[in-house]
């Protein structure tokens, strides 16, 4: 890697951002905006309904007393509840991010072949490897980073809205906010990005190779191929030959090839994961928990498969000749 290659990569990623500003930037921003709007509307509705029915929490400082009467354990529960409120904004963004990355990858090496602008990109002294890598970086770093930053801002606003609402009911806002752990939440979310990138590797690789290879309808190929094979495997019970249940194929091949771009699927389906302790006070996205996934063979086999698929995508990018 010399300086020009790095510079090329930087500008290629910037190029991706220019082209996909809608998906990478506006989609999370608008989703976050809608999320906040719905929350505000919800709170207003609750307030109005509450006022109409003569229920007014804490007007007499009752709620404040409730908090004052809590012991340390209860207080930490409140803190975690607030953290969940912050994560909840991310929950919606994560789904949007999954869709954005999925369709971005499918189009990344196909759209410019379809509109023939590949002839322009290929007339520049940029290697096909750099081009494909820039798309991988955009999908697994740029898009999630933007989503997380937006998620953190939305989460903070959400926390603030909650606090302000409660303050109308006589609760001390600052005391409440001190119970939450916004920086830990931030840290956990940012720390999850590399895990996401690794977990998404096989899906990104598969979608990009379909995108580089198919002459038309990359979506159909990308989805129909694994699902079709999955159906055949199910129908003929092929997995029985390996003493594995049919579900193994769906979980480890179809799911990894298509759904790994959705953040959190790793933590849900990753093998050695999920010993959520009975202690609900535990932070759900604590990095010590989420990074358990890094010990799962499924993650690393997926990374290897992803790299192989990407090598294939680079090869097709180089030689696919139909513009």
């Amino acid at each position: 890697m010399n300086n020009q290659t790095l510079k090329d990569l930087y500008w290629l990623v910037k190029r991706e951002f220019w082209e996909h500003r809608g998906g990478f930037f506006w989609a999370p921003v608008i989703t976050g905006g809608i999320f906040l709007l719905l929350n505000i509307m919800g709170i207003i509705t609750a307030e109005v309904l509450g006022a109409r029915n003569g229920i007014n929490f804490g007007a007499s400082g009752g709620l404040q007393h409730v908090i004052a009467d809590m012991d340390a354990g209860d207080l930490s529960q409140v803190g975690f509840a607030l953290d969940i409120a912050m994560y909840s904004a991310m929950g919606l963004l994560v789904v949007v991010l999954g869709f954005v990355v999925f369709f971005y990858c499918l189009g990344a090496l196909y759209d410019d072949r379809r509109d023939r602008s590949i002839l322009f990109w290929k007339s520049l002294p940029v290697s096909d490897t750099s081009t494909v890598l820039s798309k991988v970086i955009s999908a697994t770093v740029l898009a999630p980073v933007i989503a997380v930053v937006v998620g953190i801002i939305v989460g903070m606003l959400q926390l603030l809205i909650l606090a302000v609402t409660l303050s109308f009911h006589g609760v001390n806002v600052w005391q409440l906010l001190l119970l939450a752990h916004p920086f830990r939440v931030m840290f956990n979310l940012i720390g999850y990005i590399p895990l996401y990138a690794l977990w998404a590797a096989p899906a990104v690789g598969w979608l990009l190779i379909c995108s580089a290879w198919s002459r038309s309808k990359p979506f159909l190929w990308a989805v129909a191929l694994p699902v079709g094979v999955g159906l055949l495997v199910t129908w003929f019970g092929i997995m029985g030959l390996f003493n594995l249940p049919t579900a193994w194929f769906w979980k480890n091949i179809v799911q990894r090839a298509l759904l790994s771009v959705f953040p959190g699927t790793g933590s849900m389906f990753g093998d050695s994961m999920i010993h959520i302790s009975g202690n609900t006070g535990t932070d759900v996205l604590d990095l010590a928990q989420t990074w358990h996934l890094a010990a799962s063979p499924s993650l690393w086999i997926g990374v290897v498969a992803g790299v192989a698929l990407l090598a294939g995508a680079i090869w097709f990018r180089r030689w696919r000749d139909d513009a």
Partner: peptide, 12 residues
């Protein structure tokens, strides 16, 4: 290289 006119990406 200039191919026929339609190869500049439309979004740029």
């Amino acid at each position: 290289f200039i191919a026929d006119v339609a190869v500049l990406p439309r979004w740029i």
